[in-house]
Design a protein around this nucleic acid. Structure first.
Lengths: 238, 238
DNA sequence: CGAGTGATTGACTGGTGTCAAACCCTGTGG
DNA sequence: CCACAGGGTTTGACACCAGTCAATCACTCG
């Protein structure tokens, strides 16, 4: 397993200045690690966590549960992401957080320790703030994606985003990135029924630009896929 | 026009501790004000603003524009909101910001001044960070709303959210709140076609719980409306 | 080899979108 | 004062995309 502090420093440095002192402080931050099994919940809607987590390995997702029991996935997260950083400043968490089908490993940082660090290192505070702002930009993209695009474009856009983000953090091998989900979970992410996911996927395969199987995205023609999904990665940049 | 510093202090105090010193510093923050005509853009996608704005009066909206020209509204904002606070830390803004049909008034604060203030007053920095986190919670709710609910529930949920937020900041008179939009704009918010908006509105009226006309929401039976929209205001609380 | 899970396909239904027309209200100008 | 124009709302007809129901297929695992 990669060193979590390397991941942490690299992630913050990818969008914010990190001085030697900032880095030293970050590396001195106490943590615990936790391994998650497939689909295991890490935090549940309504809880008031005293830790925030950074993802080390695998993928996790945030989701809402509707009264009918239906799930809506809100966002997907890769190594280096802080999927519940907002719980530092929002008492009650409004969504759940779970590992995807392959499981995941996370580092847990106590809010107390984080708050103390942020008080000492304003630059780090800004870096983490920026982290939450990029998070929000992804939410905005998801609103537009799920509200204004056709099923085909919607799915292509999601594939593009995950692939692009995976590439940025060195998680693309060849032209394939992990997205350890079943088709029904894809449906709960994109706001479409399982059957529609399957048919839309068939359409996308037909274009020869992408495939999705065994929890992995295979990009065969990036330009075509990005065009289908109307994908512009600007929102992922600081 | 209400005093903008009163609005500012009250808004931050509604979710964060604001000391006398914090308040004095906030009130010393230089600003410019600007009046916006109906539908006037304040910021455009791709720009790199050097100011952030707080809304004083009226309503504004953030939106994406798709290559087809179609608009997707991302969020609606009332007095006290900071609809582009993220531009403090994200250079390029990924969406546009416009006034709704009745126009609006905003206070502009230079990023330089804000950054200087945040460096001096960590508590204020946290308050504004929290402001952006609440913003993100609203985005999450919008993803679920537009992806997982029926047209009727979706519209009811939006009405509930706007009404609830308006009430919190003292903008509900009787049982009515301003939402200065046309039906087609409502469609661009909820991800449905104009005709569907009109028919869904008809259905909602039939329930006797709500009406929407002349850019105002009229709540006739809150309990029924909240039930239809599956509305739980927890995500609006810090 | 059967059980179980997920993927795929077909048949059918129904909710939404598109197209189009009528209606309503307001402001304007003859 | 009335006719007209224009924007927004409402309604109808119709098509089609996407959802539901259901069966089959493919693969893995005891």
């Amino acid at each position: 397993m990669p060193n979590l502090y390397d991941i942490l420093v690299a992630k913050l440095a990818s969008h914010s200045p990190v001085s030697a002192e900032d880095e030293a402080e970050l590396r001195a931050l106490p943590h615990r690690t936790r391994e998650l099994g497939p689909d295991e919940d890490l935090v549940r809607q309504g809880e008031m966590p005293r830790v925030s987590v950074m993802l080390i390995e695998g993928e996790v997702a945030r989701y809402h549960v509707l009264p009918t029991g239906k799930r809506q996935y809100l966002s997907l997260h890769l190594a280096g992401d802080w999927p519940d950083l907002q719980s530092l400043f929002l008492r009650r968490i409004d969504h759940s957080l779970c590992a995807l089908n392959d499981g995941a490993a996370v580092a847990l940082f106590q809010h107390d320790h984080l708050r103390a660090l942020l008080a000492r290192q304003p630059a780090t505070a800004q870096a983490l703030w920026r982290e939450t702002l990029l998070d929000a930009a992804i939410f905005r993209a998801a609103i537009t994606n799920n509200s204004a695009r056709s099923a085909k474009a919607r799915m292509a856009h999601l594939f593009c985003e995950i692939f692009y983000r995976a590439k940025r953090v060195g998680l693309v091998e060849g032209a394939t990135a992990a997205l350890p989900m079943h088709q029904s979970q894809l449906g709960d992410t994109l706001g479409m029924a399982l059957v529609t996911v399957n048919r839309t996927l068939r359409e996308l395969r037909r274009t020869g630009s992408v495939d999705f199987k065994d929890g992995r995205i295979f990009v065969l023609d990036w330009a075509v896929l990005a065009a289908i999904g109307d994908f512009d990665p600007d929102y992922l940049k600081a």
